[in-house]
């Protein structure tokens, strides 16, 4: 099994993500935005950062990179699992691989803080995570307010595609627990084999740095990839 981590010009969480995967013990391949051949990969992570400086709209310019064309094909033809983190989430919505878009935080500022999120439902992409589970993860973004047209929101929840929500420390959904003005406190979205979230699991890998919940989340996703690979072979 091998997982690819993509570096776009301006990605800055690529090294942290590679390190997190090495802690989990997964073989990885570090690839550049210009690569087109993804055939050896069982899954791909688009890490956080400011690809192309977040200029124009965050994620918009990276969505046009050569690797994204190949990624799109791999998702359509062989349901390649893809995980987008923060800027990776923004790139996936701009590329049309996930519904909705991410807008500037409602308060207009970049925000870096610890945030509790709740898993809305169990899913095949994260076999280790159960519905209602709380995770404490860092957020660090200026454009993280998730937005979909109001008609689509029902489907997102009905199909459990809105898989992660911002909550308070007790796990309660409230407007006070929403750090950026996301519609329905949405922190993560999935569709098909593609999942993404605004928080940074790769920064929550050890208790000394604040939390190990990111490790649980990434481990669950890797287990999902591994299960798929096992069944396919």
């Amino acid at each position: 099994m091998k997982i690819g981590v993509v570096t776009f010009p301006g990605s800055n969480c690529d090294a942290d993500t590679l390190e997190a995967l090495s802690v989990i013990g997964v073989p990885v391949r570090h690839l550049f935005h210009e690569e087109r051949d993804l055939d050896d990969l069982d899954a791909v992570i688009l890490p956080g950062g400011f690809s192309y400086g977040d200029y124009l709209r965050s994620g918009a310019l990276a969505a046009k990179a050569p690797v994204m064309r190949s990624l799109w094909v791999a998702v359509q033809t062989r349901q390649l699992p893809v995980l987008g983190i923060c800027n990776g989430f923004q790139i996936l919505t701009e590329a049309g691989l996930l519904p909705g878009s991410l807008r500037a935080n409602a308060h207009g500022e970049f925000r870096c803080a610890w945030q509790t999120v709740r898993v809305t439902a169990a899913s095949a992409l994260f076999p280790g995570l159960s519905a209602g589970e709380l995770l404490r993860l860092p957020i660090a973004h200026g454009e993280g307010a998730y937005y979909v047209a109001s008609g689509e929101l029902g489907q997102l929840f009905g199909d459990h595609e809105a898989w992660l929500q911002y909550v308070d420390d007790q796990g309660m959904l409230s407007v006070w627990a929403n750090p950026n003005g996301s519609v329905a406190n949405i922190a993560g979205v999935m569709r098909g084999s593609v999942a993404a979230l605004m928080p940074h699991p790769e920064r929550a890998m050890m208790a000394e740095l604040g939390s190990t919940d990111g490790r649980r989340l990434l481990q669950a996703w890797v287990d999902g990839v591994r299960g798929r690979t096992f069944h396919a072979s």
Partner: peptide, 14 residues
Amino acid sequence: DPAGEATGHVLQQL
């Protein structure tokens, strides 16, 4: 104009 430079560069690459 950094944003303009980066955006223009991507359009040229396309």
